Amino acid sequence: MKPVIAMDIGGTVSRAALISGTDIHWRAQRSTPARAGPEAMLETMDELLREAPAAAAADAAVGVAIAGQVAEGRVSAHNPALLPGWTDYPLQARLARRWGRVVRVCNDARAAAWAEYRHGAGRGCDEFLFVTVSTGVGAGLVLGGRLHQARNGMDAELGETLLPDGRTLENLASGTALNGLARAAGRADARALFDAADAGDAAAEALLAAGIAQLARKLGDLAVLLGIARTALGGGVGLRPGYLERLQRALDGLPALYRQELRRAELGGDAGLVGAAELARC
Rank of each mutant, 00 (worst) to 15 (best):
T176H: 03
A185V: 02
Y243D: 07
A96H: 12
G153I: 05
T176R: 07
L208D: 11
T32Q: 10
N107H: 13
W86D: 07
A96R: 13
G186S: 07
A71D: 08
L181E: 03
L215F: 11
G166T: 08
M41S: 11
A216Q: 11
W99S: 12
K218E: 15
A185P: 00
S20L: 04
G180Y: 05
R191F: 08
V137A: 06
A113F: 03
A210W: 03
L147Y: 00
A65E: 09
D126K: 11
R94S: 12
L181Y: 00
R281I: 10
A277W: 00
G120T: 08
L233C: 02
A229W: 04
S76H: 03
A209H: 12
Q248I: 00
G220A: 13
P84G: 05
R74D: 08
T168Y: 07
A156P: 11
C282I: 11
V274K: 06
G37H: 10
A81S: 12
W114G: 05
D221G: 08
R151N: 10
R183I: 04
V142Q: 05
V103R: 10
V237M: 05
A232H: 00
A182P: 04
R191C: 08
A203M: 02
G138C: 12
G140V: 11
T132M: 10
A112C: 09
E266G: 02
G85A: 05
R264M: 11
Q248R: 15
V224H: 04
Q69L: 15
